[in-house]
Nucleic acid binder design. Structure first.
Lengths: 341, 341
DNA sequence: ACGTTTTCCGTAAACGTTTACGAGAACACA
DNA sequence: TGTGTTCTCGTAAACGTTTACGGAAAACGT
């Protein structure tokens, strides 16, 4: 079934070395024979065995993205990543790299899966998401000397790897500014664990802006939940039970906001009327909610493309003559004003 | 850096053959030496090179899932698949198989990517989703003799491959039954292209139930849109503009329903009050919407596990002594009654 | 003590590539 | 004609495994 380079060689009555050279575009092969090889390859439907090639070259020509059902997030998935992956895939393909997505089991935070990918050399590089403030995966990879890039920053690993993150700190501050400008003084924040770096950054921006406006930070207006609908649903009532309830709520992502709005509705509080709502990481979901949620929209597909470029530039084998460069970028979040605040 | 089987052998002063046999649990190796090999492997942090192993064995020990941003669905992703993949991954891992998710570019319906996976032998089997009524991917795979399984049925390929599907026909009929029992006679259906098999099945069930209740089928109450929020948003107004507007709407999935409800709200029509809403493929999104949407919930994670079993059973190399069996199953959809109908 | 079986291990080939090396042929130039 | 250069290709080794084969040593049975 599977035709190998030997079949091609036999068919053309030339050596496998020549076939390989012809296929790989090397200079030392006659233009005529090259053409014959190419024709035969098409005719016999030949394509190189990936294992054989990887083994010889010592590279798999593929990049792994570690996708993980977030802890506590058994039921709902991560639409967030799809456009990102689309961009990543497209850019990698331009360099002849395949993107493979490795599913982690829920809960183990990928350590085990990651080791497996690295140690069995299934990919030449990996891309991490859901970066934590202190991230053992990053420590592991830097220590192992394995190429990687991250979607999101971390304090781990120093500046030794490329990373692309969103400016959650500024978004948190901008959200507060906007709400204050609209007359709000009691502003709640619903966020995930501070381990997750974007939760940490968001809160930092929130507090900074509060301080700037001379508003005292009130721990009662902060609640921590799982970063999904159930999390938002569970913890939003907490901040509403404050002695001096908030008139506005900032949610750290769309799923939390949906769950939170549900809880509000059940308590007879109308989001957008009785309490203002802003979402930090907005997806199309927010747009189609009623009321349409004001939020900060990330440019996910361009981010995927950019991170691919950054990863490639950091790998000596790919960087070419210019040498490897570590690039780190923080992209702005664009505010989309809608009806909920 | 990477320690090979040769390093192990040299370190222990035995041959690589013995090391390999020890590692692979073959019988013809002394219990004592085996232990020494295992210890050394742990100490030297050895794990076999995947490319070398695949090359020799002629198998990659991995299964590919073809994930694709749906045509027209650039912005929003597919949360639907995450729990399914979790189950699939877990079950495959039990048999020592890796799951890799291959991203397709939007639009090309995967044909090209699929060829690539098959021809370069990157995986031993593939899993397909979004099955169409006539599915060229299935034709290609059966013709190539490549093992695969599908989430969803198709008319292509006969009974030559395992498939697991949901009973969309029954769900469509059940939805109609339920609405009729609640006094509705004008029931609209918002569905995707009939190419997509589940859209076809849904409509068949819908029509059958209508006939059973003696209600005439009205094409004005059917609308076709992209299977996402934008699709639902775009086409729902169409059915509402009917001369005799519907008092109930069945949406083919949650995303369409969200978009549809948005459109209704903007027209001053309250879902759950002014018009009843039922969703065929329900996700947690429906639960956290206001009003909470009545829908049919699939058991995604168990489905993933089951499809993995079915796939494994169909591959002679894995089926063991019992021989390969092709299993096809259709699972029921469980109605979750909530507030929208 | 001797033949037979069992246990254990080393040798070497094979999987499908890529590539360093060298050789023959053609060509150029004097 | 001789020498050097350029084209083109074949040979063979190497990547890291697994495994068929055979043989030495040990264990067993009489």
């Amino acid at each position: 079934m599977a035709s190998s380079i030997h079949d091609l060689a036999r068919h053309l009555n030339i050596s496998i070395g020549t076939v390989s050279r012809a296929l790989n575009g090397r200079a030392d092969v006659n233009a005529d024979t090259r053409q014959r090889v190419l024709d035969a390859a098409k005719k016999l439907n030949y394509s190189p065995n990936q294992s054989g090639r990887s083994l010889r070259r010592g590279a798999t020509h593929s990049v792994a993205f570690m996708l993980q059902p977030h802890p506590g997030d058994q039921e709902y998935g991560e639409p967030f990543f799809i456009p990102f992956l689309t961009g990543l895939q497209a850019k990698l393909a331009e360099s002849g790299l395949d993107l493979i997505v490795v599913m982690g089991a829920p809960g183990d935070y990928q350590q085990e899966r990651l080791r497996r990918v690295v140690e069995t050399r299934r990919a030449d590089a990996v891309v991490l998401a859901w970066t934590r403030r202190e991230d053992e995966r990053i420590d592991y990879l830097t220590q192992a000397g394995f190429p990687f890039a991250t979607l999101g920053r971390s304090r781990s690993g120093g500046d030794s790897y490329p990373s692309l993150d969103l400016d959650f700190e500024k978004a948190g501050a901008d959200a507060v500014d906007r709400l204050v400008a609209r007359g709000h003084r009691r502003i709640a924040a619903i966020r995930p664990s501070l381990d997750l770096n974007f939760g940490y950054l968001f809160l930092a921006g929130y507090r900074k802006a509060l301080r700037r406006h001379g508003i005292e930070f009130d721990p009662e207006l902060i609640a921590e939940g799982f970063i999904n609908e159930a999390g938002g649903y569970a913890v939003t009532p907490k901040v509403m039970r404050s002695k001096d309830p908030p008139t506005a709520i900032i949610f750290n992502n769309d799923a939390m906001a949906l769950g939170g709005c549900k809880a509000l509705a059940e308590a007879g509080i109308r989001p957008g009327h009785d309490v203002a709502v802003i979402v930090i990481v907005d997806t199309p979901l927010c747009r189609y909610f009623s009321p349409a949620l004001t939020g900060f929209r990330p440019a996910l597909e361009p981010m995927g493309e950019r991170l691919a470029e950054m990863l490639l530039a950091s790998i000596p084998a790919f960087a070419g003559t210019e040498g490897a460069r570590i690039i780190r970028e923080v992209w702005p979040l664009e505010l989309i004003a809608r009806d909920s605040d």
